[in-house]
Write a protein that binds this DNA or RNA. Structure first.
Lengths: 198, 198, 198, 198
DNA sequence: AATGAATGAGCATTCATTCAT
DNA sequence: TATGAATGAATGCTCATTCAT
């Protein structure tokens, strides 16, 4: 088997095991068994357990970044772009619960000092939101009094919390389409019936 | 020393240590030392380590619930109530980073099967948001097409992600007042310049 | 059981196991089992495996120092003192093979950078030899052209090598009394038939 | 590259690495890297790690034997022969610290049961000393009451301990010539000022 | 002969929990 | 109630050895 194959086999196994058990409860031997590989083999591809988590996280987020970028490429309406981002994120999380779970773990489970160290991909991902917002402001489509740096976190946090619930209640009461629509609506027009009175 | 005192001393110590080190990296002996109590004493008050986390979490959320309820009591404008909720949550998280951290930990760090088991207080807390929204809808102040069950998660998630960042970057670039205002604005009126065109 | 008892029980067990298997081949669990103690208990008394070896070594050498000092106290003939030192060392090594073995291990088995770090007791022990030699020189009993710093090593090394062999061939061909006499003779008068002709 | 070359390349590398790190801390991959050879290649020339140590030891001692034998060939004065042996040994150890270290390791570091198994070269080396002594006794130059089997160990042990110190304190306070002279003097004429009075 | 990726047994150390005092 | 010494199961990681190429 080629090296690249083994690497990705381990990544896949690690994603699954981390998602299922959480980082601290996942044993290296669990991951090795899941990947059908010897324990020691893992250390040919990763420096240590945490390095695996980080790699998994970065790779997954990296794919999200690529995916969303290719979708946004053809679009230049900021409103539509935000809709696409939200819809895509929620769909991916719904489709791939392991991914959602690994994001949760990486963002909250490990030492906060290390946390921000290598998460460039994640920053890149979040910055897509703020870029959209800035673009919308430049085009007079979005309110200028919205701070993109805060909005990006609010939007990501909202979606992430929703995805968290999906991972707990496997059978959510809400349909994905409804949820998408709801989130989009909340962020685009807010909850006020008559915003002009705000 | 009375029993209640020792119990709360341990809770306080545990909050601090869990927040600082995370659940898995916190040692019982750390907590015991912080509480100035013997390791074994902790087991007179709690069944096990996880039970402590849950107790800490429930107590803290319980206090948040009481606090916000007393503030909302005198208010009946749903819009104002939502503002109060958001402002209060963010201020508490900013003031008490340990609390924010413990919420992060409890919500994401431990086995998802156990997660929802006893979190009644937390549900109660989130339901305050949905209650406000329903009230607003009944009063024709909030849009009827907003689903309160989704909105409550979106609002909480947004605030929680913002608080998460505060715990990483100790010196945030944004002032608390600005952040409050931003979150309130995003959720009340959305980001669209001209929502009526939506 | 009192703490001091447990400490010495572990020291005794460690001496035995280190002697039998060597430092690197000794397992903590071997020592724990030998001491009838849980593995973890060892770490209540020692920082780590190497710390145990060092402790064992220092304690044993410390006892040798005390023992020889009390024997030398009543003696002031340097020639006799050297005889006593040699006889005592060889007898102790013969009697307590574990001790001989632990000296071998500590002196040669572990990283040379750490080696000299804490071995003050050992230096003290060796310096008894050089002190005797200096005394003999002051009293015109020993040759002045002998350098005590080299002689102490030569004498210790000679005895240590002999003890090493005892640990290999359990049934030495030589009696302890003969060996003592031989070593004493070699160092006191050398091998020359007619030294005055040297 | 011819097989013999590779074999000796590995021996050289192993000597260096064993000396630097000690047997147990030396990794096969260290030796392979030092020899510019793949890890697996080593197992084409040696059965296992310990076999390498033994080979290194035997080869080095073998060279010492050859060297000293060729020097002693032309000499027939036992006193001079002993001087030559001592001087040669100390000089070689001083010159080649790796060799000294490997002797230390092999003689004390590894399981005593295996120790004596194949050390014929080493016995041969030590027996040169006892042969010299016997010759001296036959020629009435050395005292008859010296037991060659003990003397050979005392002499080797003394020199070995001195060499050990050289490997710890890189900058010894004593010059090699002085040390040689000291050791020779101690063994030839002893430390007594007036041996005839012994 | 040579390679080096893969293996998996092995082990020091940690730490939640217990229990004799 | 309170203590803290003792326990021992649990696990990340290493590295000598193997073997397919």
């Amino acid at each position: 088997m080629k090296t690249a194959d083994k690497h990705s086999k381990i990544i896949r196994a690690a994603t699954k095991v981390f998602a299922k058990k959480g980082f601290f409860n996942a044993r290296i031997s669990d991951i090795a068994k899941e990947a059908k590989v010897a324990d020691g083999t893992i250390y040919l591809y990763f420096n240590n357990k945490y390095d695996m988590l980080l790699s998994v996280f970065e790779e997954k987020i990296g794919k999200l970044v690529e995916q969303i970028n290719s979708q946004l490429e053809k679009e230049d309406d900021p409103r539509r772009m935000l809709e696409i981002f939200i819809a895509n994120h929620l769909r991916e999380m719904k489709k791939n619960k392991n991914l959602a779970e690994v994001i949760q773990i990486e963002l909250r489970q490990t030492n906060k000092i290390i946390r921000d160290y290598r998460n460039n991909k994640f920053s890149e991902y979040l910055n897509i939101i703020s870029t959209i917002i800035k673009l919308g402001q430049a085009k007079d489509v979005f309110r200028k009094d919205i701070m993109p740096g805060i909005a990006k976190r609010a939007i990501f946090g909202a979606m992430d919390e929703i995805a968290r619930i999906w991972n707990i209640n496997m059978d959510s009461e809400y349909k994905i389409e409804d949820t998408e629509l709801q989130v989009i609506r909340i962020f685009l027009v807010g909850v006020l019936e008559n915003p002009s009175a705000a």
